[in-house]
């Protein structure tokens, strides 16, 4: 059956595999996420070998359309994160 993994599942997994307390595991997890986010925020890519690369892409503003009403509207310039999976992950999943 399809399952959704959450933060807690990963924190528990780290706790049981490494043998540290749940609070430490949770603290380290948050620190890892924060490091990745702040790196991306500063415009730096994050490369995790054997997993993939997170990079920031700058999107230019463009004209879009409301599909319901057909009204034209400007979509403002924005940044998005793209994730490129590494070869190992791709081959493991396929």
């Amino acid at each position: 059956m399809k399952k959704t993994w959450t933060k807690n599942d990963l924190i528990e997994k780290i706790q049981s595999e490494i043998g540290i307390s749940l609070s430490d595991s949770s603290k380290i997890f948050e620190e890892i996420v924060e490091e990745i986010l702040s790196s991306l925020e500063n415009g730096n890519d994050v490369k995790i070998s054997n997993f993939g690369t997170f990079s920031v892409k700058k999107k230019k503003s463009r004209l879009g359309r409301n599909p319901k009403t057909g009204d034209e509207k400007e979509i403002t310039a924005r940044n998005v994160i793209s994730f490129y999976p590494s070869k190992t992950v791709k081959s493991k999943i396929s």
Partner: peptide, 12 residues
């Protein structure tokens, strides 16, 4: 190293 490895292996 082990923690980070476990984390990403878990996701995979």
């Amino acid at each position: 190293y082990k923690i980070i490895d476990t984390l990403f292996n878990c996701v995979t």
